[in-house]
Simulated scan of single mutants.
Amino acid sequence: MCVLCGEFVMQIHWTDQTSDDTSEIVVGDLQRERQRTRIHRTHLCNEILQFYRLKLEEWNGSKFILSDSKGNQEVVHDLGTLWQTAEKLLGYPVDPLDSYLLEQLRKH
Rank of each mutant, 00 (worst) to 15 (best):
K88Y: 13
I48M: 13
Q73C: 12
Y100P: 00
V76I: 13
D98I: 08
F64A: 07
G71R: 04
S99V: 15
Q73F: 07
A86E: 05
L54C: 05
V94F: 04
R53E: 11
F64Y: 15
S99D: 11
I65W: 09
H77F: 10
K88I: 08
V76H: 07
I48W: 10
H77R: 10
V94M: 05
H43C: 07
T37H: 10
H77Y: 13
N46K: 04
D98Y: 03
I65N: 08
Y100M: 04
W83G: 00
R53Q: 12
G61A: 07
L101A: 08
G91Q: 10
E87N: 06
Q50D: 06
K63W: 11
Y92L: 09
T81Q: 11
K55S: 11
E47G: 00
L79Y: 05
T42A: 13
D98V: 07
R38Q: 11
L82C: 12
F64P: 01
R38K: 13
W59I: 00
F51Q: 01
H77W: 15
L82M: 10
L97E: 09
G71E: 09
G91F: 10
L49W: 01
R38L: 05
Q50C: 09
L49T: 02
I39V: 15
N72Y: 12
N60T: 06
Q84M: 11
L66N: 01
N60L: 09
K88P: 06
Y52N: 03
H43V: 04
E74Y: 06
A86H: 09
R38P: 00
V76Y: 07
Y100H: 13
T37K: 15
N72E: 13
T37V: 12
L90E: 03
L97K: 03
D68M: 02
D98T: 10
